[in-house]
Design a binder for these strands. Structure first.
Lengths: 125, 125
DNA sequence: ACTATAGTCCAATAAATACGAACTATTGAA
DNA sequence: TTCAATAGTTCGTATTTATTGGACTATAGT
C-alpha cells in the first residue's frame, strides 16, 4: 500500500485548482469539506447531488481533488480521512478558495427552489 | 451571419467560469483582456504562451470564453472585438474574477525565470 | 471582380471522463 | 485463522470532449 501522492504546495497550480472545481460534484464535495473544516470519508458523498453517484466515480473525483492539491487523504482503518488543504492554498493563492466557495454558495442560493436544471458546463451531468 | 451567442448573466455558472479558466491559454487571454479592460482581436494572442497556437484552436478558445459568459465578442469589420464581461460577473459573483486573476499573476511571478515547465493540469499542454 | 485578411466550420484523431464489474485492504466476528 | 462485511481502487469499455489541419465564409481595400 503505497502512501497516496499529494503534490507539494509549490507545485499546485491555479489551472489545476480551477479544473478540479469546475465539476459540480467536486465543488460540492470540496465546499462541504472546506466549510466544515474537518474530515469525511468518501461514502458520505454518495448523494452530494440529487442523483446517486457511483462508487468508482466518487473515487475518481476524490483522486482529482487530491492531485490538484485541494485535499489531503489518508487511510484511517478501512476508510479514508479527507481534509481540505485550505490553509496552505490560502498562503499560496490568497483569497482564491474563499471567492470560489462564496460564488458557489451564491449560485446555490440563486437556483434553489426554482426547479431549474441549470446547465453547468454545456449541460453535462 | 447570425449574431454570436452570449449567455445572459443569470445563466452564467461558477463551474462554467472555472472550466473556461482552467486552461492555461484561456486564462492568459482572459487575464490580458480583463487587465487592459479593452478590446483585442483574436490574432493578438497567437503567441500568448511560449508556443504558437493554431488559428482554429484559438478560435475554439475564444468561443469557450464567450460561451462561459466571460467575454463579449462582436464583429468590427474583418476582425473581432472582444471585451471582458467583468462588471456583470462581478455583480453576480463578487470577487471571483479578481481572485482568479490575482492567483494567476502570483503563479506567473513564482515561476518566472525558473525555466521550469510547470505541470498545469496533469502535464498537458 | 480580385486579393488579402480574420475568423469559423468540419472531420479525423487524441485525450479525458463515467461507471459496472472485479479486485484489494482492513476490521470484526466465529 | 478463516470468513464475511465494509470502504475504496483499478480495469475495461463506452461516451464525451478537446485539438488542429484544411476548406470555407465574411469583410475591406484595391
Amino acid at each position: 500500500m503505497r502512501p497516496l501522492f499529494h503534490p507539494p504546495i509549490q507545485d499546485v497550480t491555479v489551472e489545476g485548482i480551477l479544473h478540479a472545481l469546475s465539476d459540480p460534484v467536486r465543488v460540492a464535495i470540496f465546499s462541504d469539506l472546506a466549510n466544515s473544516g474537518c474530515a469525511y470519508n468518501c461514502s458520505t458523498f454518495l448523494n452530494v447531488t440529487e442523483k446517486k453517484i457511483p462508487k468508482s466515480t466518487l473515487s475518481h473525483h476524490f483522486k482529482a481533488l487530491r492531485e490538484a492539491g485541494l485535499i489531503r487523504a489518508e487511510r484511517r482503518g478501512v476508510e479514508m480521512h479527507n481534509t481540505s488543504r485550505c490553509p496552505e492554498i490560502e498562503s499560496r493563492f490568497p483569497g482564491l478558495i474563499a471567492a470560489i466557495i462564496n460564488a458557489h454558495k451564491a449560485q446555490m442560493a440563486s437556483t434553489q427552489g426554482t426547479g431549474k436544471k441549470r446547465a453547468a458546463r454545456k449541460g453535462k451531468q
